[in-house]
Design a protein around this nucleic acid. Sequence first.
DNA 1: GCCACCGGTGGC
DNA 2: GCCACCGGTGGC
Length: 289
Amino acid sequence: MESNPGNSMISPIENSVSPPSGKRQKTLSNKDVDQCDDDTSHQVVIYKNGKSDRGLDAQNESHFSVEPSKPSKRGSAKQIGAFAVQCAKCQKWRIISTKEKYEEIRERIQEDPFFCEKAREWKPNVSCNDPSDISQDGSKLWAIDKPNIAQTPQGWERLIRLRSEGRTKFADVYYRSPTGTQLRSLKEVEKYLAEHPQYVTQGVALSHFSFTSPAPLQKDYVRKRLQTSQSGVAHNGSTKLFQPKEVQPVSWAAPPVDDDPENKKLVLYNENNLPEVVQSEPAAGANEA
DNA sequence: GCCACCGGTGGC
DNA sequence: GCCACCGGTGGC
């Protein structure tokens, strides 16, 4: 038995803001991604600088959609563009069709490793022989999600809101209750459930909630208290996209790091309006809507 | 007025 | 030192 489920999941996130006026000035350039932390192996993020998304592997983007349920009041919010999971066998990334499916997989990723075949539920003939659905080329913002996060209860929604670069935190996690109430901590959930016992009766429990947010691959996305380079890491935040080849094997995938409960999932963020996918290998069919 | 976004901080 | 929690507030 393979000692480790070693697959990770990621989810591309994109900036769904689609302001016609589009004056996004943040365009991180390629410096963003510096995946140093080799040991973490649990979080990755890629930021997409608005370049071209030429060879999009569209087939996925069409399905997924993390609809912002609300036209985002502030146009700056970045939204998750897609969710992906890494095959425990071939290490390739597969875009997961829906957020729900993603959460379902994430919840059991350790006991029930993900393999390309599983993606056939929404991508008919896919196998390990097919190219990865997305590649880490620095054109998107990536973040690794934590494993073992319970599936969001029916009727509820788990939201991840990214903060902008340079803030003190990477993202905020919220839950939206069936009645539309947004809750931002376990305490609030606890209180809410106490006030709405019907959900408890239905089986909703505190253990079904987790406010643990994904972490960015780009380590300096979040402002550090002191950016001294005390750890002689290879952290060269200058301009450079990390090289897919080199990087891939690192963190996220980390098949060998089985005991690391962390490294299981990833989330990918993207600042553009386009949903998805990087110009990875020309996957089969680029059928963009 | 509401709420998305942010920073501060107390507790671990 | 990290992160869960929460209050403040500016943009809409």
